[in-house]
C-alpha cells in the first residue's frame, strides 16, 4: 500500500512532465496538450495498456486527464460486449460520468457562490 503512494507520485509526476514537455518543447497550448493526452489515453486503452498502468500506479494513472480517454473506451467496450456495435456509441459515458458531472455540478455551485476575481 505504501508502494502505491510512491508509484502514484512517480507515475503521476511523469505524466505531468510529458504534458510540460509537450507545452514547452512541442509549443502546444494547454488546450492542445490536454486534448492530445486524452486521445493518447484512448489509444493506450485500445491496446489494453492503460488498465495495467492503473493497477500499478493507482491514482497516478487515474487522476491525470489521460484516464478520461481510457474510461471512455472502457465504457464503450463494456457496452459493446453486451450490445455489439451499437454499444460503442451508447456505452461511452457509462464509466466516465464522474469527472464531467462533478465538473458541471461544482462549476455551477462555484459560479453561484464565488465572485469573479480581477
Amino acid at each position: 500500500m505504501l508502494g502505491m503512494f510512491f508509484w502514484a507520485f512517480v507515475i503521476g509526476g511523469l505524466i505531468c512532465v510529458i504534458g510540460q514537455l509537450m507545452m514547452d518543447v512541442g509549443k502546444l497550448t494547454p488546450g492542445h496538450t490536454l486534448s492530445a493526452m486524452v486521445v493518447a489515453g484512448a489509444v493506450l486503452a485500445g491496446f489494453d495498456l492503460y488498465e495495467p498502468l492503473i493497477d500499478f500506479a493507482g491514482a497516478g494513472a487515474t487522476i491525470p486527464i489521460m484516464s478520461f480517454g481510457n474510461s471512455l473506451v472502457a465504457g464503450a467496450m463494456q457496452e459493446a460486449e453486451k450490445h455489439g456495435i451499437v454499444g460503442v456509441l451508447t456505452g461511452m459515458f457509462e464509466v466516465t460520468s464522474a469527472g464531467i458531472s462533478a465538473a458541471i455540478v461544482f462549476g455551477f455551485i462555484g459560479a453561484a457562490v464565488f465572485k469573479p476575481k480581477g
Binding site: 508502494g3 502505491m4 508509484w7 488498465e51 495495467p52 498502468l53 493497477d55 500499478f56
Partner: peptide
Amino acid sequence: HLDRFRMK
C-alpha cells in the same frame, strides 16, 4: 508491487 502490471 512490480508484478501489479500483470495483475489481471
